[in-house]
Design a protein around this nucleic acid. Structure first.
Lengths: 259, 259
DNA sequence: GAATAGCGTTCGTATATACGAACATTGGAG
DNA sequence: CTCCAATGTTCGTATATACGAACGCTATTC
């Protein structure tokens, strides 16, 4: 933590995030207005970011887009170490056995960040849906990740006591969340029923290494393919995969820089 | 172009790129030494980048790594529009038909940037992954992309007249490159024989929309699976895919912000 | 266990940068 | 065709920031 956050650095990150929020492009003036800073203050920053290909400027339409070098950096984050490849193999195995979709990710502040998605059909290695974030309390593996915190800590993380709704089924209160987290700590399994995407149910487990919840994994299933029998099957595969992955992480501890 | 490049912005990008070059982590002092700036100058920048999760600091080992939010931004670059998904489908079709690996990418300065890779098997050790860059002159589709420039322009882009070697087979002179580019302009096909990865041959085509070379696509094949008969087959599939992709781009012109 | 070498951290001041206002340019409306 | 309302751009000065040196901390070495 700096004495105060470095202003220019914060602004550059704000700029990138603002541009990211506008896939159709955004003008210098709109960025300035959105950040509540003078146009002239961010003008040189934008010019440099564009010059270095971290932003792309469409000069005709006077709009800025994200630049290719962000893609390059973003991929370096996951591609350098092969530990994620090994984990993906485990996920693919379960995806093939169950014909359902597996997710693997970590906690990023109060959001879950999808690092890997594995399903039967799109098993080529393009960073696609990974990279998305969702509020942790609204997803199966998000709740698995939150289970590392005590009820008291959870209350401190969500001081308002209420949780913004994503769907009709999203948990709405911190008390309800804490109740589920307690169950997760006791049983080792986390459940989600259409709380982030209507029509999708999940079972999830936390990945725990040396007593710490490092990441989580979930299997996502359309409601119409979900029943009690299959749930038992999913849980068995999840447990098997969990152990494999915890072993992989233990054996490659130095490569784990994701949480 | 700014009056002069904005110093702080440049430094932040330099920091990120320096950290990216050190997957095993790098200390504040080493970053400072590498950029030839005082430690105290970048200290607040690093603290802010880490605080915002664009860098991750391992405080025990005093090392910095790339942070998850770079992954988030990098994925926004490709995920927002579904145009790349559509192109991916075309590549996957050819990958299945030929059982070989397809690449799709764009020019980024003098490098080729891999945007999509499509192959049948996910766990194969691969030439390159999306997000990687290679010198354009050393790859099949890189040469396809360079074919949009005249011999004179190419000489201006590589003023030394010589090309750094990647493998034993990399083209070594700009004259040799220009000779091949002329052939590409005439035939529409670009060839590579182990010039970036020993043992891999490529055939590639440029993707041309409204007279402009926007991107390129290649099929990468181990030498031992490559022969004249298959080459004809590859070229037929590439032509078919090229037309499909050019159509996709034409129909989704507004989504194309990649080059 | 003392000494050392490396690291991150702090702080006052020289210096680069951010700001606001005025200017320039473009596209669209009347 | 003219005007207007956007946009991006420039420039001098107030201001935040970068610098260098000194400090403190930790871990390794002898």
């Amino acid at each position: 933590m700096p004495p105060v956050p470095h202003r220019t650095t914060s602004r550059i990150l704000d700029i990138l995030e603002t541009v990211a929020l506008h896939p159709q492009g955004i003008s210098l003036s709109d960025i300035a207005q959105s950040l509540e800073v003078p146009k002239s203050s961010i003008h040189p920053l934008l010019a440099t970011l564009a010059d270095r290909n971290y932003l792309k400027s469409n000069k005709k339409e006077q709009r800025f887009f994200l630049g290719e070098n962000l893609f390059v950096l973003g991929n370096k984050f996951v591609n350098d170490a092969d530990i994620l490849d090994k984990i993906k193999e485990v996920l693919l195995y379960v995806a093939e056995k169950t014909s359902e979709t597996l997710y693997f990710g970590v906690l990023s502040n109060l959001d879950v960040l999808y690092l890997i998605k594995a399903d039967q059909f799109s098993n080529f290695r393009v960073v696609s849906n990974p990279g998305n974030k969702l509020p942790a309390y609204s997803t199966g593996y998000g709740k698995a990740l939150l289970s590392q915190f005590s009820a008291q800590q959870i209350r401190a993380l969500y001081p308002s006591g209420t949780l913004p709704q994503i769907t009709d089924n999203t948990l709405s209160t911190v008390d309800a969340l804490n109740e589920q987290l307690e169950a997760i700590r006791n049983t080792g399994f986390s459940y989600e029923k259409g709380e982030s995407t209507t029509g999708i149910q999940c079972v999830a487990v936390p990945i725990i290494v040396e007593g710490k919840v490092l990441s989580g994994m979930s299997i996502a299933v359309p409601v119409f393919r979900y029943d009690d029998v299959r749930e038992q099957e999913f849980k068995a595969y999840l447990l098997e995969a969990k152990q494999k992955i915890e072993r992989i992480i233990t054996d490659n501890r130095s490569q784990w820089n994701y949480s």
